[in-house]
Simulated assay, not measured.
Amino acid sequence: MTTTVTVITGANKGLGFETARRLVEAGHTVYAGARDAHRGERAAKLLGARPLLIDITDDASVAAAAAQVRAEAGRVDVLVNNAGVAGPAAPADELTAADLRYVFDTNVFGAVRTTRAFLPLLQQAARPAIVNVSSALGSLTINADPAAHGDLLPAWAPLLAYNSSKAALNMLTVVYARSLPRISVVSVDPGFTATDLNGHQGTQSVEEGAAVIVAAATAGPGTPTPAFVGATGPVPW
């Protein structure tokens, strides 16, 4: 297989679907990940991608997905950890450890499960890359002083579970990049995009939001790593 092999989690809708569409258009062989087989197969057919059944909260499901890609493609050039959940929007003092555990199991532990399972396949690629779909809401700098960074995040919200999970995802980016120097590892901030995640209340379209994910997935050699980037450039950690 000579094309770029790309795996995208949560690719049956929203940012994942649009990212997959544009990468297929760019010539990538895309494995469109979804945790529901029917929805995943339907999305893959619409995209011209390969369906990949994967529930990133389940070790066995992730292992089976990696085994499928290994058997069919033998390597992964780009892994896009896109699947995520918003979690509860309740005030911080009302949230429990269980509330945070639910969000972290997808947004953080799910990324770890997937990265670990696909790492041997990434190591078979000539210029492997991992793109973690994060958020400016995960920036410690912005959360510490939102008013000073309104140009980067005009819609800041004190979402304890979501913000802290994206901050943790950013730390995964940094540590994986330092530990795996042959792999480009970046976090991207798509911006406040209208998707199911936020009840379609975002201020931009999925086409606009997916642009930075696609750019990171197609950046190629020489990409600074680790990095945290948005539509207009670097985002402060």
Rank of each mutant, 00 (worst) to 15 (best):
F17C: 04
L46I: 09
H28Y: 05
T4W: 01
N163P: 00
T29G: 08
A111Y: 08
A44V: 06
A125G: 09
R21K: 14
V131H: 00
E18L: 10
G150A: 14
G84Q: 00
T223L: 12
E207N: 08
L23W: 04
A157R: 15
S134L: 06
R35A: 05
A144Y: 08
F228T: 00
A136L: 09
L47E: 02
T232V: 10
V108H: 02
L137M: 14
D105Q: 07
E208M: 06
G27Q: 13
G48A: 11
A90Q: 14
R182Y: 03
A210K: 01
P158M: 14
A43V: 05
G10C: 05
D59W: 06
H149P: 03
S184H: 04
A90L: 13
Y102P: 01
P146A: 14
N143Y: 06
S184N: 06
G74T: 12
D151V: 04
M171Q: 15
T4P: 00
G191Q: 10
S179A: 15
V85Q: 11
A67E: 13
K13A: 14
T193C: 05
P224R: 04
S205C: 08
L52D: 04
A98H: 14
I142M: 08
V131F: 02
A66Q: 02
G191E: 10
A97K: 07
D93Q: 13
A227W: 05
E208F: 10
H149R: 05
T2M: 09
A11H: 01
A211K: 04
A117N: 02
A26V: 04
P154Y: 14
A92R: 01
A44C: 10
